[in-house]
Design a binder for these strands. Sequence first.
RNA 1: GGCGCAUUCGUCUAGCGGCCCAGGACGCAGCCCUCUCAAGGCUGAGAUCAGGGGUUCGAAUCCCCUAUGCGCUACCA
Length: 482
Amino acid sequence: MLPARTRVAPSPTGDPHVGTAYQSLFSYALARQTGGQFILRMEDTDQVRYDPHSEQRIFDALRWAGLRYDEGPDVGGPHAPYRQSERLPIYKAHAEMLVAAGHAYYCFCTPERLAAMRKEQEARKEPPRYDRHCLALPPAEVQTRLAAGERHVVRMHMPDTGVTTFTDLVRGEISFENRLIDDQVLMKSDGFPTYHLAVVVDDHLMQVTHIMRGEEWISSTPKHILLYQFFGWDLPVYAHTPLLLNDDRSKISKRKSPDKTRLEGFRERGFLPEALLNFLALLGWSHPDGQEIFSLAEFVRVFSPERVLKSGSVFDMNKLIWMNGHYIRTLAVDELAERLQPYTRYTPAQVREVLPVLQDRLKLLGEFDDLAAFFFAAPQYDRALFSSKQFDSAALSTHLAAARAWHAALPWPWDKEAWEAGIRQLAEERSFKKAGDLFMLLRVAVTGRKESPPLYDTMILLGREQTLARLDAAHAALASDR
RNA sequence: GGCGCAUUCGUCUAGCGGCCCAGGACGCAGCCCUCUCAAGGCUGAGAUCAGGGGUUCGAAUCCCCUAUGCGCUACCA
């Protein structure tokens, strides 16, 4: 395959969106596997929704995800600028070319007239579309109104006949009747282009060969194709990917899925970018061998647009969390410790020390401190955790004292086999119904929790002094609570 | 309303005419391991392949119709 030039074109309108990473993933893979380039372009043509901080956050989010782009606003490239707001003269010139050729026209209709028109159309059960009021204006009048500086837009003059057909790489042939397509606004009255003009002009000028985008764009594609034809340009290849869905199967949205849409949210909670990317890849594509776990490099190698899925996928947070845990388990301790640094208040040495017993229990990096806390600070005992069906707190208290004395007498370093045998024997001597009950008593005493890594490992990590101190503290807590 | 796209276990999917009375993954249940929680291993429940017509010796797979869902229908992308 010839080198593909692909692009992702987010709008800097707020929080970096998961869809940007999702779309980037496929475009990135296609560019990389063909030895082409992947481009980032800022579609900042909406002055109303524009957020000045958004752009930098998008750069950071893509960098975090590991989706390196070859050209973009912050890295430059042969087709700069990569920010649409800095390309206004280009769009203006192209819009004028279209007008000159009769493929577009000036429109002076006010928002009020447009609104009234739509209302009427709706009342008559007609599809809402522009009535071409300004197409009929005499050229002389257009010139005088333009010269007078009257507010206006440029509209695309759609053909009244014919069918626009294109072959989508993932869905096959798709056709639209030209006469049913509205006369799309190309240039807004504020001098900015709309998406439709800007995307076509830029994709052509930037020599984009493959356009991969969400399926919500399918119905806009004929407008874009017609523009290519009006300009006399070669068409790019289109491939529309399935949508990411909310649990109710509607297009994923911040309002319905606040925990799934913000890219920064995934980072904050401690998802590994490789897990997120792997998961997203599976939402829009399937591996030819049915493999579910694969790296970005592997994805780049085996990706093919033909295997892109056709229907939208519900974003299953549960599975992502599972996958994140899986990736965490595959990491070497040193590597994991490093990755935990932004998420923990503990030192790298501390993290490395306890990680071996915590790694299998970690699903999100952000949960590490909660899991590790008892290693580094004496627990605050929750009296309820000590409750036993068999013993009252007085009895529990004496058992703890006995266990403490037994540990104190055990030669350090404690041997695992000897230690465990000792605990079991002690449980029997103190007439515990199950040895496990004694283990649990000690677990709560040592960790302040009912779930923890294996007791022996935990005590060894804590050390003799700290273990004895906690047994004392628990004993005191139980004794004072009467 | 119009146009478009889609439709296999709860969810993500495999399947491109016979190997499928449908396989895998997450989740769920049980068992094993086990001092708890995880991790891991095993087993199981779970889909009349949206419905109806065709085509064919044979259809989840091809064709048509219907239904449903979703997307678009802005001087937002």
